[in-house]
Design a protein around this nucleic acid. Structure first.
Length: 347
DNA sequence: AACTCGGGGCA
DNA sequence: TGCCCAGAGTT
């Protein structure tokens, strides 16, 4: 009776006005079946990811979660192994040169994650005695750690009963109980409360990990394996004939944008230091400020500014004129005098 | 709520 | 080519 009451309280939608993001109340029997099915499925079908090994440290789990943000697990795994061997504790990463942190992030994407992860390591050392905080509330105060990552680390590393709500969990719950193809772009507070109603009092860690894994392997965004789904008879989306939702707006442009230039600058950084030698400074601001102007003066601090690196940036951009202007600024700022022999760009 | 932020693999 | 991937921070 207590559980029923709690779940009823988490539902604010009404049958009279469901709205586009309606989150229906779910019968307790269906909740129980989904919980046990997912938990049993996870025990049998979970991938053997290295950070799921029993003795994995909270720090290692935290790093795996940061690396996995918007990044396929298959690409994370080799990078995670390297990081754990090189920087096994928060203190190790806190002391590392930032340029090396960026370089060893390699091509995981969103390099600001690496910068914020090092900031988080320094906060952990300075304010938490070098130990990863235990609660989701504390974790969420760290740079780069939001609602999802805080809940995931607290659950997976510390066993706290949190509500882990990533894109996989959202898609599974929306399909099962709301009958829609995909969730809204960002979870609302109400959706978080709705999802909390599915987290069991016991085995909540297995639920959190399991429903996420279920979304990654069975209830996938494209090509869902409904034939292998143990919940297809219950699934509202499947029963409705798997209707397709409206498509999202087109993705951001790439060619000719500052974003492309930043990617090229990251290429320069990765290529400029092939040994363990580190430059004295790195363009941190460039990768943290969303609307920062590309400042090619920072190249002088990244390492050798070669004609090849500048030519690559120009070739990568669809807007050669824009790059040309930026290179002109670079020359006007005097860097040409220091790199005179290397700035002869071909026309 | 809407934008911004990498990079690669796949249908 | 467009979509998708264990999201977070800023405006």
């Amino acid at each position: 009776m207590a559980k029923r009451l709690r779940i009823q309280m988490t539902h604010r939608t009404t049958p009279e006005n469901p709205g586009p993001g309606a989150l229906p109340r779910v019968a307790e029997a269906a909740v129980d079946r989904v919980r046990s099915t997912i938990i049993d499925w996870f025990a049998a079908a979970a991938r053997p990811l290295p950070w799921r090994e029993p003795d994995t440290s909270a720090w290692a789990i935290l790093v795996s979660e940061i690396m996995s943000q918007q990044t396929p697990v298959a690409r994370v795994e080799p990078r995670w192994r390297e990081w754990m061997a090189r920087w096994p504790t928060p203190a190790d990463l806190a002391q590392a040169p930032t340029a090396e942190v960026l370089r060893r992030w390699d091509r995981l994407g969103y390099p600001r994650r690496a910068l914020r992860l090092q900031e988080a390591a320094r906060v952990i050392v300075a304010e938490h005695g070098g130990r990863v905080p235990m609660t989701a509330t504390e974790l969420e105060t760290l740079p780069g750690i939001g609602a999802y990552t805080a809940a995931a680390v607290a659950s997976f590393a510390h066993g706290e009963r949190t509500t882990v709500l990533d894109t996989n969990v959202r898609r599974v719950l929306i399909r099962l109980f709301a009958g829609r193809d995909r969730p809204t772009p960002a979870p609302s507070r109400r959706e978080t409360q709705w999802a909390q109603g599915f987290v069991p009092l016991e085995r909540h860690r297995e639920w959190n990990a399991g429903v996420m894994e279920f979304g990654a392997l069975v209830c996938t965004a494209r090509g869902p394996r409904c034939a292998d789904c143990p919940l297809s008879d219950l699934c509202a989306w499947n029963r409705a004939g798997r209707p397709a939702s409206a498509t999202k707006p087109t993705a951001q442009k790439w060619a000719g944008t500052d974003r492309q230039l930043r990617g090229a600058i990251m290429d320069v950084l990765r290529a400029a230091h092939t040994d363990d030698a580190s430059p004295t400074s790195v363009p941190v601001d460039l990768f943290l400020a969303p609307t920062a102007e590309v400042d090619l003066r920072l190249l002088d601090e990244l390492g050798p500014v070669t004609a090849a690196s500048l030519r690559r940036m120009r070739d990568l951009s669809a807007d050669a004129h824009r790059v040309s202007r930026l290179v002109s600024d670079l020359i006007a700022d005097g860097l040409a005098e220091r790199h005179e022999d290397r700035l002869s760009l071909p026309r």
